[in-house]
Simulated assay, not measured.
Amino acid sequence: MLGSPSNHTLLNTATFILLGVPGLEAAHLWLAIIMTDMYSVALLGNIIIMTVIRTDSTMHEPMYHFLCVLPTVDIVIPTSVIPKMLNIFWSGNGIISFAACFIQMFFVHATTAMETGLLLAMAFDRYVAICKPLHYQTILTPWTMIGMVISIIARGIAAMTPMTWMLVHLPCCASHVVPHSYCEHMAVAKLACADHRPSGLYTLILSFIIVGIDVIFIATSYSLILKAVFSLPSRDAWVKALNTCGSHVSVMGLFYLPGMLSIYMAGLEQDQVPLHIQVLLADFYVVFSPMMNPLIYGLKTKYIRERVWNAVTTSFSRCFCQNSPKEKSPT
């Protein structure tokens, strides 16, 4: 009987069935086209940013190293869910194994926690560069950066491991149908017969702690940056410093605002916010920020924009020269 307790746990559940966007099945084809385009732009943009930074020796500075790690995270987040999501939208095949479901869930949440840590590290980098420029190389040494990146990765893994453990040990009901496009934590937790609120509360509290601490330190960094910038005598120096930070602020806004809204809406009931709205917001969140980040850095950071443009034009020139017919030598 649906909803009756079972001796099985989610750990023993063989498969789940993802529904896509419940209530918008007729629009799945259009959603597939939109998601395919956004995912393609995200992959291409982040790969270009990584390639340019890694191959250009003049960009081997702390700021660009962080900018090289961020696209990696921005590739992992959508890649964890978009291929299966597109399979659902294109073919209607929503069957996903237990292992794949929870690996998907773990990677989405862990890499999201890593991204907020990277944004904090980048804010610290800008603070040191603008407020303590003479000590920039001594503070942000290669070993310091490696330690920061390792700490960011470890924090994301450590934060999400207990959540996954709690969820997989919940007793499972008869239904294995997940009313979502991917294995979102709350959507899977609601399949359990037992009280899933401890798991949901842990996720909510942890999200606010991680994001809250990061946002407080980011806000502090930028407050000190603004104080230092406006103490400069030249207006041109103001504009240059603010332009340097503008891309970071834009990326943070795209990441934090939709993310907090998605977390808040996931905890609401369907009579408060329609389910398809909640699912659509969660779907677009995992791909929108990764798609926009390389565009923002490419457009707002002049140095990166010039290097990307030079790399693209050079590639086209080489391709054109190789494919153009060679002139026959006179006999």
Rank of each mutant, 00 (worst) to 15 (best):
N93W: 08
S181F: 12
Y136C: 05
N7W: 00
N7D: 09
I34G: 02
H28P: 08
I77L: 07
T161C: 08
S262I: 15
Y64T: 05
S329E: 14
M105Q: 13
F284Q: 01
G259A: 13
S231H: 14
G94F: 02
T15A: 12
I210T: 08
I34R: 03
I77K: 02
G246M: 10
G253V: 14
M166A: 07
S151Y: 10
P198N: 05
C172T: 12
S223D: 00
M292K: 04
M114R: 03
G156N: 02
V149C: 09
T72E: 03
I130F: 08
P274V: 00
Y202Q: 09
P198V: 01
Y127E: 06
S315V: 10
I218C: 02
A241G: 10
I34K: 04
S324Y: 12
F16V: 03
F284K: 01
S329A: 14
T138P: 00
I150A: 13
E306V: 07
L18P: 07
I216N: 01
M63E: 11
H109F: 13
V108F: 14
V273R: 03
L19V: 00
F217R: 13
T111A: 15
D37F: 11
I103Q: 09
W238N: 09
L11T: 11
Y182E: 01
W90T: 15
A189H: 02
M265V: 14
S40Y: 12
G147K: 06
G45P: 02
H180R: 04
C319M: 13
N46I: 10
G259T: 10
L254K: 00
K132I: 04
P325I: 15
G298K: 03
H65K: 14
T111N: 14
